[in-house]
Amino acid sequence: MHRTLQQSLKLGWVVIGLLAIMTVAEFIVAISFEDTVMLFTLLLIVGLAKAWLIIQYFMHFGQLWGHIADVWRGTLKDDPVADREED
């Protein structure tokens, strides 16, 4: 997932645009809904979506995930000796 400078900068604008839209959506939701549980759920969904955008595209969580995935495969892949354990 290697991007050029231009692509990266463009991505930043796209993400901030999406975040702006969601913030507006959040505000409208808060004005229009009265029911606490409903409002809470919607706000939580919007919040999680915003957080995901930032974590994924601004904080590059995927970058780390590559390594975590390696580590994870390590847990599944065992040496033949330990595999003798009748599991």
Partner: peptide, 17 residues
């Protein structure tokens, strides 16, 4: 990260009913 935290603090403080 500070921004993500605010993403949740803002509705919690301002928008809940």
């Amino acid at each position: 990260f500070v921004d993500v935290a605010w993403v949740f603090i803002y509705p919690t403080l301002y928008l809940l009913k």
